[in-house]
Amino acid sequence: MKNKTLIINGSPRKNNNSSLVVREIEEFLKNLNKNYLVLKLNENKNIKEIINAFNNSSQLIWVVPEYNWSYPGVIKMLVEQIGVELLQEKFNIVISVSIGPSSRNALSSMANLLFSMNSITLTPGVEINNIRDCNPEYIQEHILPPIKNLFYFSRKVKE
């Protein structure tokens, strides 16, 4: 397993709010000189490319919008297409995004999905609510510490 980070933008919409968070994560990873790749679930990708991205990643950062009190169906479809085996023993963090006051249901539903596949998921995850009112500083303040923890635990387990 390679030491690459895969950022998954779980929104099926073209101009989605999750991309605001993804851009901040990308900037953070660039500053740390981390090797990363972004997978946007709103773009048509070859399934072999997607499987390759998961195979070459040891850390997964899921940026998940809340849709109907859960995560979007495109994420469930992705898991079924790539197979549970590709998610096992990967280090995950879930960042849920909402335009409303809470995205906790998406966060807990996504974490439960990952737990059920023997995937290592840092809890409690991160909620970014009222995303349209958030500035980059707010997003960084809430997502960067858990992402640092993701790298810390990933590194410690390998030692």
Rank of each mutant, 00 (worst) to 15 (best):
Q88C: 14
E89F: 01
E89L: 05
K90N: 03
K90H: 06
F91K: 07
F91Y: 13
N92I: 01
I93W: 07
V94Q: 09
V94N: 03
V94C: 14
V94K: 15
I95M: 15
S96V: 08
S96G: 07
S98T: 06
S98C: 01
S98E: 09
S98Y: 04
I99R: 01
I99G: 10
I99K: 05
G100H: 13
P101R: 10
P101C: 06
P101D: 12
S103F: 00
S103H: 01
R104D: 10
N105Y: 10
N105F: 07
A106L: 04
A106E: 12
L107M: 12
L107F: 09
S108Y: 10
S109V: 00
M110Q: 07
A111L: 13
N112C: 05
L113R: 02
L113E: 04
L113K: 00
L114F: 15
L114C: 10
S116H: 13
S116M: 10
M117I: 15
N118Q: 07
I120R: 06
L122I: 13
L122Q: 00
L122Y: 00
T123P: 10
T123K: 13
P124S: 08
P124D: 06
G125W: 02
G125V: 08
G125T: 02
V126T: 08
V126P: 00
V126A: 05
E127F: 06
E127R: 11
I128G: 11
I128D: 05
I128F: 02
N129E: 10
N130A: 11
I131W: 03
I131D: 06
R132T: 13
R132K: 14
D133H: 15
C134E: 14
C134W: 08
N135C: 04
N135I: 10
N135M: 11
P136R: 05
P136E: 01
E137R: 10
E137D: 09
Y138C: 15
Q140H: 09
Q140E: 13
Q140D: 13
E141K: 15
E141I: 12
E141M: 10
H142I: 02
H142G: 05
H142V: 12
I143Q: 05
I143K: 01
L144V: 09
L144R: 11
L144G: 04
L144M: 10
P145V: 07
P145N: 04
P146E: 03
I147M: 04
K148T: 04
K148V: 13
N149G: 15
N149K: 15
N149A: 03
N149P: 06
L150R: 14
L150D: 09
F151N: 03
F151K: 05
F151C: 00
Y152E: 05
F153Q: 01
S154D: 03
R155C: 03
R155L: 00
R155N: 09
R155W: 01
V157H: 11
V157R: 02
K158Q: 01
K158W: 00
K158E: 10
E159M: 00
